[in-house]
């Protein structure tokens, strides 16, 4: 009997137990269970946006916090992000259909001259995990490519990554070019990468340096909220 007790049937759980269970399943990177949970909530009449925010994003926030606090490491976070992405796959078309509010959009890329991408990929995955739309430009991204993507994608955030001390200065080239063109203030510019620090972020004129993917997500949420407030006030 005890074994049967352990075998939870998700569809038998009331909403207020299913949602925390989904948070746990996300935390444990259980892809199929997360997808099943999303399906159940939708079938119970939840709006896609509510499923996204209360079940998925809230669950990923716990993952992000534990990553930030050094309790989880990259492998666990990647598994959780993969599970989140599966759930998102189901929600994405529905969110568009229902005209749900957007969390925000980010264009991200590793700067020109730099071919490292694990950290950048991780940020992209965590940002998607937090419900952001992410356009990944890949590695070795020249200033022209950033500019083109900013124009076509109209994101809220520009994210740049570098893992080499020799490529970090390229971030300043991109920011200076934005400033020259009078575009700098149109975007929130976040930078990250192992050899960077806050001082560097300030020196090159970024809005913030993000120590890791979890910090990137928190910072992005914070800045996007401020930006929206500004728009509302203006």
């Amino acid at each position: 009997m005890a074994e049967e007790d352990d075998d939870l049937i998700l569809s038998d759980l009331p909403d207020d137990e299913l949602v925390p269970q989904m948070h746990d399943d996300l935390y444990d990177g259980l892809k199929e269970e997360v997808v099943e949970g999303v399906e159940i909530l939708l079938s119970r009449g939840w709006t896609p946006y509510r499923v996204l925010t209360e079940a998925l994003v809230a669950g990923m926030t716990v993952v992000g916090n534990d990553f930030r606090d050094g309790i989880l490491f990259v492998p666990e976070v990647l598994l959780a992000a993969n599970a989140m992405k599966s759930g998102m796959g189901l929600l994405k078309p529905l969110l568009v259909e229902t005209g749900a509010p957007r969390m925000g959009k980010m264009v991200i890329g590793t700067v020109k001259g730099d071919i490292h991408d694990i950290g950048k990929n991780l940020v992209a995955m965590m940002m998607e995990g937090a419900g952001f739309e992410v356009v990944d430009l890949g590695i070795n991204t020249a200033v022209e490519a950033y500019l083109a993507a900013l124009e076509t994608e109209q994101p809220d955030i520009l994210g740049m990554s570098a893992l080499l001390t020799t490529t970090m200065p390229y971030m300043k080239i991109v920011i200076d070019t934005l400033t020259e063109k009078g575009l700098r203030d149109d975007y929130i510019v976040l930078v990250g990468g192992a050899p960077l620090n806050e001082e560097f972020g300030r020196a090159i004129g970024a809005d913030a340096y993000c120590r890791d993917a979890a910090v990137a997500v928190e910072t992005a949420k914070d800045f996007v909220a401020r930006k929206h407030n500004q728009v509302a006030a203006g």
């Binding site: 352990d6 269970q21 746990d24």
Partner: peptide, 19 residues
């Protein structure tokens, strides 16, 4: 350094795992 005993994760209230 990530190895110390003080690093054991705080208890996160867990629900029952699925079988």
């Amino acid at each position: 350094d990530g190895t110390g005993e003080g690093d054991t994760p705080p208890d996160r209230p867990r629900r029952r795992r699925r079988g």
